[in-house]
Design a protein around this nucleic acid. Structure first.
Lengths: 111, 111
DNA sequence: CGCCATACCTTGCAATGCAAGGTATCGTGC
DNA sequence: GCACGATACCTTGCATTGCAAGGTATGGCG
């Protein structure tokens, strides 16, 4: 999957996944990696940004099969942002599809 | 419109517009700027990239209202690339929409 | 001649995805 | 006990690309 296309969409995807239930970075990578391809080097800085924006908050949970997991939970602000991003995404897709669709030829263009 | 979302889509949009007829950078900006917001600082490096990939070729046309225009014409390779990019775009949108759609809850998740 | 629109272009910055590499914890097998 | 793989965290440096800001040149108009 083309790297550039993902820019600006991964935030949305992560928030959407978190909206279905709390999770931690390592798990998020594995979930999203199935269809989207995303690596650890991407997710950790990303989660820091989301937290810096106060869209998520964290809590530690000890694991019986490795180090403690840092779980992320959507905040109210995060949920609001998710809604806004969903709208932006829809508008963006519409806009691009409009450009991609064959333009209705004008009368003079048909000569 | 969010800057990051455009990354990787502008190539596609420009190729799609050129597929409807030759054009020059200054005009492309004005056309795309209506819905997409794109500036000159973006288009000129972009056109150079497209040309470097041999997806477009150029020819000069003198204008009666300013300096000569550098027209861009899609090459056969450019048209093939456009088709490939259209498919990538569709797949990408499907993938993101899949993540955004509420996941079908599994039996155990419903406990 | 000055000014605006047209039309070209470059430089430097910001954002972000990723590969590569590093650290620590836990269970399993020897 | 100890090596090893899986789990889980993290950082550094690079590549790509959109954009603001600024620069140059042409042609028509007052």
């Amino acid at each position: 999957m083309k790297t550039q296309l993902k820019k600006g969409v991964l935030d949305l995807c992560v928030l959407a996944v978190l909206d279905r239930g709390d999770s931690y970075a390592y798990e998020l990578v594995n979930q999203l990696a199935q269809g989207m391809q995303i690596s650890e080097g991407t997710i950790y800085p990303l989660m820091r940004r989301l937290q810096a924006e106060a869209w998520v908050e964290t809590y530690l949970v000890e694991s019986s099969a490795g180090p403690s997991r840092k779980y992320y939970r959507l905040t109210a602000a995060g949920r609001a942002e998710l809604d806004a991003m969903r709208r932006e995404w829809r508008d963006f897709v519409s806009e691009v599809d409009l450009v991609l669709s064959p333009a209705p030829q004008t009368e003079e263009a048909l000569s």
